[in-house]
């Protein structure tokens, strides 16, 4: 894999611990993500990958530790602030707005950036109309980019799974994020869909310079596209490094293949 132009640390997770009652979901996790990097979080089922993402995203409040995002340190995140700071995400189980068309779904990604007042929006006058047109242009760009032009007006529920995943990604991209969190972007896809998705992830990273943090089960895919990986098992970090380093890590091999005691 060609050398990528990674920059400074954009996201730094420090000593993060998360418990649900007596269940330790994450224990003392630290890792950093550099700008323009594709960083994967991998691990067997129940390793705490999604919990990790939800902490970064502000959905879960970790009991210990802090998260540094674009130079600011937080002990508690909230989803709104995270979104305002340029972090977008997609979901493992599709979380699209079923009552809306593809276009409307993607337009919701622009919501935070809409500034004109309600009445002007309702009446479609002056600056509000101009604003709507601008947002629409951005969205059209993303639609072209992800090759879903034909489905603009289709209600999302009618699309096949792979395309719905693409709409999910499109909505996140509409936020023009600095950091994109992808929760199993290829789960449940067939080979062809996986290849498409891989291509989109690499293109997003390449063309928009978006930093990508992704969770994935498919080891082959992860090893191919990520710069560095964090490996979690039972809520603990057992490995961190480039694909080659992780592949050679005995603890990781044990976790994935099992060990005889």
């Amino acid at each position: 894999m060609a050398e990528r132009r990674t920059g400074d640390v954009i996201l730094d997770v420090k000593n993060l611990s998360l418990r649900f009652g007596g269940v330790k979901a994450l224990t003392d996790i630290s890792f950093d993500v550099r700008e323009h990097e594709i960083r994967a979080i991998i691990g067997p089922n129940g390793a705490g990958k999604s919990s990790m993402l939800n902490c970064i995203n502000g959905v879960y409040q970790p009991q210990q530790g802090s998260i540094q995002l674009r130079g600011r340190t937080f002990t508690h995140m909230n989803p709104r602030r995270v979104a305002e700071m340029g972090v977008a995400r997609t979901f493992q189980n599709l979380a699209l707005f079923k009552g809306m068309s593809v276009l409307e779904n993607i337009m919701t990604g622009r919501n935070l950036k809409m500034r004109s007042n309600l009445l002007a929006q309702a009446l479609r006058i002056g600056p509000a109309l101009r604003e709507e047109v601008e947002h629409r242009a951005v969205v059209e760009n993303i639609i072209d980019f992800l090759e879903i032009q034909a489905y603009r007006k289709t209600p999302v529920g009618r699309l096949p799974y792979g395309l719905q995943k693409r709409v999910d990604l499109a909505r996140a991209l509409a936020m023009e994020p600095k950091v994109l969190l992808l929760d199993e972007p290829m789960a449940g896809m067939n080979l062809e869909e996986k290849q498409d998705m891989c291509r989109f992830i690499l293109d997003v990273n390449d063309e928009f310079g978006t930093t990508i943090v992704l969770i994935e089960h498919d080891m082959g895919v992860v090893m191919d596209i990520s710069d560095r990986l964090v490996v979690l098992d039972y809520g603990k970090k057992i490995g961190d490094g480039t694909p080659d380093e992780v592949r050679a890590n005995q603890a990781v091999i044990d976790a994935y293949l099992g060990v005889s005691h």
Partner: peptide, 16 residues
């Protein structure tokens, strides 16, 4: 409408 359809996704795009 977004919130009505999916709370989690609505949160992720910054809707409080």
């Amino acid at each position: 409408r977004a919130v009505a359809d999916d709370h989690q996704a609505a949160q992720s795009i910054g809707i409080p």
